[in-house]
Amino acid sequence: MSEVLEPKKASAAGTVASAEPVYALMDQRPADMSNAESPLSRFRWQVSSSGKNVGVVARELALLGHFILRGNVANADFVKGAAEVLGVELPGTLKSNAKGNLVVRWLAPDEWLITVPGEQAFAIESNLRKRLTGHYSLVNVSGGQTLLVLSGADAVNVLRKSCHYDVHDRNFPVGKVVGTTFAKAQCVIRRAGQQEWELVIRRSFADYLAAWIQDAAQEYGFAVK
C-alpha cells in the first residue's frame, strides 16, 4: 500500500517530480460477495400483519457503489469529462440526474454523490480517474452509507412525520434532492418517483432510522421488500 500512496519525490529538490497526480486506485469490492453485509442486513424488520393494507414499503438498495465527486463547475473540462464518463450531466442545485441504475445527486455547489450498482463501481471509478484532470476529488464512500427507498401511497406521510422539509409536490418535484434532517439524523432525500423516495443514510444511523421508519409506518401498513 505505502508504495502506492507515496508521492513521487524528486531526488534533489524534494519537490514532486512528475506532474502526474498520485492516487490509490483499487477495487474495494471483494471478488466473493457471499458474506457481504449491508448496514441493514441484520436489521430485524417488524412488518404489519398480513391482510392489512400496505401503505409504505421499505427497500434497502444494499451494497451499491457510492462516490463523492468534487470539482469546480467553472472548470469546463471537469464538467465535460464527468458527463462523458457518467453519461449524464452533473446536475445543478438541488437536482439529480439518472441513467439506468446510475444516479448523480447534487450535494453542494462543488460536490456530487454518484451511486452505481456495486459491480460497476470500479469501472466507473477507473474511467473517471482516466478522464478527469487537474483539481478534483473522487472518493469511494460505499462503506459509509446506504440507500433506503420508501415507496407507497403513504410514504409521503412518513416523511411528513419525520422531517420538517416541505415535501409537497410544488416544493419537492420528482428528481429533486435535498440534504436535510430526517428524524434528527442527517439525510439526503431524493424523490425518485411520484410515490418513491430515496434516503441516503449513514451507516452508523441505519439501525436507528430503520427503527424510526418502521415505527412511523406501522399505522399505514408497513412491508419490506
Binding site: 442545485t93 438541488l94 453542494a108 455547489p109 420538517h164 422539509y165 435535498v178 440534504g179 436535510t180 434532517t181
Partner: peptide, 11 residues
C-alpha cells in the same frame, strides 16, 4: 445562499 432556499434552523 448555496442551496438557494429557506430552511429550518435545525439544519
Amino acid at each position: 445562499p448555496h442551496c438557494g432556499e429557506y430552511r429550518e434552523e435545525e439544519e
